[in-house]
Design a protein around this nucleic acid. Sequence first.
DNA 1: CAGCGTCGATACCGTGACAGTATCGCCTCG
DNA 2: CGAGGCGATACTGTCACGGTATCGACGCTG
Lengths: 280, 280
Amino acid sequence: METRELRYFVAVAEELHFGRAALRLGIAQPPLSRAVQQLERRLGVTLLERGSRGVALTGAGAVLLREGRAALDAVAAAERRTRRAAAPAGSPGLVLVTKAGASTELLSKLLDAYAAEPGAVDVDVVLCGIGEQERYLRDGRADVALLHRPFDSTAGLDTEELLTEGQLALLPAGHPLTGRPDLRLDDLGLSGLPLPRWPRDDGSYPDGPGPEVHDNTQLLQLIALGRTVAVLPESVRAHLHDDIAAVPLLDAPPVTTVIAWPPHSRSLALAQLVRTATRL
Amino acid sequence: METRELRYFVAVAEELHFGRAALRLGIAQPPLSRAVQQLERRLGVTLLERGSRGVALTGAGAVLLREGRAALDAVAAAERRTRRAAAPAGSPGLVLVTKAGASTELLSKLLDAYAAEPGAVDVDVVLCGIGEQERYLRDGRADVALLHRPFDSTAGLDTEELLTEGQLALLPAGHPLTGRPDLRLDDLGLSGLPLPRWPRDDGSYPDGPGPEVHDNTQLLQLIALGRTVAVLPESVRAHLHDDIAAVPLLDAPPVTTVIAWPPHSRSLALAQLVRTATRL
DNA sequence: CAGCGTCGATACCGTGACAGTATCGCCTCG
DNA sequence: CGAGGCGATACTGTCACGGTATCGACGCTG
C-alpha cells in the first residue's frame, strides 16, 4: 500500500464525498475514484458504500481510516524527524507542545530551569488546541508535550507526573453561589447558568444550552459576562481578574499535569528536559 | 514520502550494500540507487555516506531507519487490520503472540477461561522468537501479546500485570551448587560454567565463552549436558526433568508476565480477553 | 605497477501507471 | 418529467519506474 493511496482514501473517508476530497487533494475527481477502486481491489475489501446520496464507510473502511491516519502520521513523523536530525545546529533542539492557556506558570518555570542546565538546547514552544497534543507528538511536529489527565489521553505515550491540583468553580463576580466557602459539582446546576460546550475531536460542537468555546480566554470572558460557569484547575487563579470569583470544588476529579513523549525516543536533550521537569 | 521509497531506503540501510538490497527487493541495482538519491534530494538530507567500500549511515539516515521501520510497520498494520475487519466470521477473531516456551501454563489457563466466556471468539496463538512480540503488535500480525518484564519492553503499549514470580538457577543435576538451599547471582560465577549467549535484536550474538542459544528447549538441553547454567522464572519448573536441578535465587529480579496490546485498540473481544486474564 | 574485481553512478530505452478532459448512467428532487 | 448532483467510465498524454549496458573510482593482488 502506497502512502498516496492512503492519503486519497483518508481524504474521501473524511469528506464522504469524492468531489470535495479531490478538491482538497488538488486532483480531479476521476483519478480519485479510480485510485480508491484500485485500493479496494488490491485489498479485496469494500471500504465504501456508494449510494446515490454520497458515500458511507463500511466497517473495514472505518478501520482503515483510523489505522491509515496513524500510518500517515508515522510517515510524516519519519520525514520531519529526519529533516530535523540533519538540520544545522541553532535550529530548535526540542519542540514542546501544550494547550494554549494551560499550565503557563509550570511551563515557564520548566523552561527557565531547563535553560539553566548545562548543555541545554533551544526549546520551541507550540501552543495547540484542546486535545491536539497527541497528534503533534505522533506526526513529529513536537518532541514532548504537557498533557492534563484525565482530559487528555496518554495512551501509547511515556509520561512523568508533574503536578496534581484540585479544581475550582469559576463564577461571575457577585453570583449568589460566590458566598459559599466551597461547592459540589451538583451545586453548579443551581447556578442558573449553563456549562460551556467544547468542540469534539472532529471540530463540531455537542448540542446544549451553553455557549460554544474553544479556548480559555474566551471562556473567562464569557464567565465574566455572566453567560456561563466553568470548572478549571486551581492554577487558573493567577489569570483571574476581580470580575470572576473562584470557589473550591470538593468532588471534582483532581487534574494531573504530565510531561509526555513518544516511546522509543532516543534524545539526550529530551531526557534532560524530562529530568528537569520531574525535579521542579 | 511514498512507502516504496521508505522500503528501498530501509533495505539499503539494513544491508549497507546496494546490490544485496536490490536483490532482497527483487529489483535491479540502478533503479535502487536512483530512488535513494531522489529521496535524499527531496528531503534535502544526506542519508548515506558512499565510500568505495560499501556505504555507511549518516545520523539522519539512522533516524530515518528507525522512524521508517515504525512507519512501514504502521502501514502494514493498517493493511492487515483492514483485511481482518472485512474477513468473514470464522476467521480468527484475535491473534495472541508470545515467546515460544514461556508462560505455557498461564497461557493455557487463559485460553480455557476465555473460551468459556459467553461471546468468546477464536484465538490464534502465534509463537515468536525472543523480543519479537512488540513487532507483531506494531505491524498488525497480532492483537495482543504476553510479555515478560523486565526482559521485554512495554514502551508504547497498554498493559495489565498477570503474574509476578521469582527466578531460579538451573544447574546440571549433581552439580556441587545443587546442594545449597538457595543461591545469589554472584554464586553462579563459582559454578565453573559460562552463561549462555542470547541473540541480539539484529540476530548476531555477543562475544563470550557460553554457548549460543535461541530458545528454551535448546537451553535446557545444554544445561542437562553440563555446558551452561541459566536463570529462569519459577514457572519453568513444570518443564524440568530430573537431569536439571533448580535452586531459588535470592537476588535475581522478579519476572512479571503482562498482557499487552496496542493503545487505541477498539475491540470488544480484546477487552474481554484482557478482563478474563486479569481475573485468573 | 598493471590488471582485475567490486561497487555505486550514469546513459538510454520501453512500458505502465497516473492525471487530465469529456461523457455517461443513475438517483433525487422540484 | 426535466434538471442537477454524484460517482463511474472512456480515452489520451506524459512522466516515473524499472530494465540492460556501461562507466568511473577504488582496492587488492601477483
